[in-house]
Design a protein around this nucleic acid. Structure first.
Lengths: 189, 189
DNA sequence: GGTGTAAATTGACACCGTGTAAAGTTACTC
DNA sequence: GAGTAACTTTACACGGTGTCAATTTACACC
């Protein structure tokens, strides 16, 4: 899936790639949707989702948290893009795949909520945003589709994507939007 | 398509809705993709795309242009959402549908380019953005997917969507991001 | 070696969607 | 009444998912 970027996820192709019969795939996973859901879980484990997320949670201040989360999630997307694309593809047609995707996106949203709350507690949430709306916006900006469009279609590098997203969200959501700083990503203690 | 928001665009359903046989649909349009492309054109006509676009082009200054375009496009999306969704669905599997979509999105991108250039000519493009990157960003922010997520999934009203998008893009892209103003949308002269 | 069992294979098939083909019907025109 | 265009009906090819049943392979245990 990663190689083919989510295209050609026919059960036939998967079976061939795995060197087993199509039927064996069904014996193991039951259906395409279930296979995708399972694989998503597996990939999260292999790619160390929890380990990475932990680093983000260490950040306490609102702005740091925002920067940390954009960096974490923005750099996680490319690792799971193929999977995500495949899931997205079956989302419309399959209940289970849809639920799995929504679940994932719910987790992202939850992290956005934590970030916005931290920001608000610091008194740094720009006054024209309600918490909920700020969460909605941050969550939407960080969608896989947007990452796809900016990096794959527009050709942005991963660093540019993360940097611009951090900057954009700070400008949009942080009170007094610190205009002076260029990047404040990882070079801080 | 509008009623069902792009789902169930099987040829069977379309034929039934039109009260004709499935075969007749093929006789008229040749294929699903062609039907979608034709319908897109038709909808543009009915919904007065050109007429609406003209109003946007009247704006001259960079910032006005940005506001006008976000208002124009942001308010156009809901009128064509069902169509867009259907096109998006077949985009992956069909060449022609993909081309039609890319063509549409290319037009949006072009308008974004005009806007950013106007902004730059006014000396109002924030210094950390290159023209190309600013276009990429504006174009991505205005994607149908983002509109879908914010309005349909998050429940934003159309006015909120347009207002926040204008504000967000101004803050992100305009030098000195005018923080004072609340909305400057449709109360134009 | 012989038996039992679990995993995998093979091939057939149902179902659904797109798209094609051909024969027949309806209705309108000259 | 002949011709023609639009439409219907029926059948079918193709590719994808998912199911089923019979069979083979491999391994463990006595």
């Amino acid at each position: 899936m990663e190689e083919r970027r989510g295209r050609d996820v026919r059960m036939r192709d998967i079976a061939d790639a795995a060197g087993i019969s199509r039927q064996a795939v069904y014996d193991h996973f039951g259906s395409q949707a279930k296979l995708l859901v399972e694989t998503t879980r597996y990939v999260d484990e292999v790619k160390g989702l929890e380990e990475r997320r932990r680093r983000f949670r260490e950040a306490t201040g609102g702005v740091e948290r925002l920067e940390a989360y954009v960096e974490f999630w923005g750099n996680y997307i490319p690792d799971v893009y193929g999977m995500a694309k495949a899931l997205l593809g079956t989302r419309e047609s399959d209940e289970a795949a849809g639920a799995a995707w929504d679940d994932r996106m719910g987790a992202v949203r939850e992290s956005c909520r934590l970030t916005i709350e931290a920001l608000d507690c610091d008194g740094m949430l720009a006054p024209e945003w309600s918490r909920d709306e700020a969460v909605d916006l941050m969550w939407t900006m960080l969608s896989v589709r947007n990452w796809e469009q900016l990096t794959i279609e527009c050709g942005w590098s991963q660093e540019r994507y993360v940097g611009h997203m951090q900057q954009l969200l700070k400008r949009a959501l942080v009170r007094g939007s610190e205009r002076g700083r260029k990047r404040s990503g990882k070079a801080r203690g």
